[in-house]
Amino acid sequence: MTPQDIEKKYGFEFPLLYKQLEAEGMLNVGEYGPNWSSEVYPKLKENPPLLLHSYDFELLTLEGVNEEIKQLRDPEDYRQIRKEFKFIPFAQSYGGDHYCFFLNEEKNGEMPIVFLSHDAVEADYLAKNLQDFIFKMFLTDMAYFDNEDVSDQELKNNLESMFRTHKKYLTHQQQDILQNILNREIIDYEISFSYGNEEAKGLLTDDEKNILLNEIIPFDKMGTSFEYSDEE
């Protein structure tokens, strides 16, 4: 299956960047199955496809994209998505929520990325387009080194490998920022919440990450959400 097959079937067009990523092998994650982690992942690790090492992100194959679109548009689907909303999922969280292109707000071939939660029946705006979303995911991964199964150094190595295969898809400004952060040492810091502080570690702080997001990829809807279903 190709992106063009899906476009023809459902009557829309993917962003040009997504089709470029597909043409250049960046959407090739192999076939998911019980042996994917042990047999497929090691072969992809050194030349990561789209956001392979990002936290809570699992890229859908094109066959998976086709199946998930069909599921989301099924009148019998438990989420009961309003007919006026057109979501095109391209990845999912480990809990089964979806990262989607939001077709309703397409402009000049670009469309926002939203996170479709199946528990809260809400869609959260993440970035105004796919390029900015990739940059945002990098910054987020760089700010939170919280995988207990992988050493801090391996997490940094994974980010460096991912940056090498992804940088051509980012702006020069985005590339420079990420490269400078990758040159840093890992730091310990605290994140302030209403209930108190939590310890964290990464290559930049949560506050610095948020400042960079607002400065480099401003989007007035980032961090806002809307209900996509009338179901409670």
Rank of each mutant, 00 (worst) to 15 (best):
S225R: 10
F133P: 14
E148C: 09
E63I: 06
H53R: 06
Q80H: 11
L203A: 00
D206C: 08
N210L: 15
P42V: 07
S192V: 11
L72K: 01
E106T: 15
Q173D: 03
I186G: 02
L60Q: 08
D119G: 08
H53D: 05
E46L: 09
Y18S: 09
L139D: 02
K167M: 04
S229K: 12
Y18Q: 11
D77L: 10
K107Q: 13
L44Q: 07
I191L: 02
E110D: 14
R184T: 00
I6M: 10
Y144Q: 07
P89R: 11
V65R: 10
T140K: 15
N197R: 15
D176Q: 02
G196K: 03
G64A: 08
N210H: 15
H172K: 15
Y78F: 15
Y10E: 05
G96D: 05
L170R: 01
Y189S: 04
G223A: 04
S194G: 07
N47M: 13
M162C: 04
L212P: 01
F135D: 04
Q153H: 03
D132C: 11
E185R: 05
E199S: 14
N157S: 15
S161P: 01
G30F: 11
L44P: 10
V150K: 09
E7I: 05
L213S: 08
K45E: 04
D77H: 15
E7H: 02
E84Q: 12
D132P: 10
K201E: 04
N147I: 02
L103N: 06
F14P: 05
E122P: 07
C100Q: 13
D56T: 10
Q175M: 05
F219G: 09
F145L: 08
Q179V: 07
N47T: 15
N129S: 06
G196P: 00
D141V: 11
N35G: 00
R79M: 15
E105A: 06
E7C: 07
L62R: 02
I191Q: 01
Q20P: 08
A123V: 05
G33T: 05
H166M: 12
F102N: 04
K156I: 00
E215Q: 11
E63D: 04
H118W: 04
K221L: 14
N28W: 09
Q175W: 02
L139C: 11
S192R: 13
A91S: 14
R164M: 07
E231N: 14
A123L: 03
L213M: 09
Q174K: 05
F135A: 09
K19I: 02
F101Y: 11
I216C: 07
L27E: 08
N157E: 14
H172E: 12
P34L: 06
E105Y: 08
A200D: 04
A127V: 06
T61M: 02
I81Q: 06
F90N: 08
D176E: 10
L130M: 12
D152M: 05
K168F: 00
N108W: 10
P218C: 06
Q179W: 14
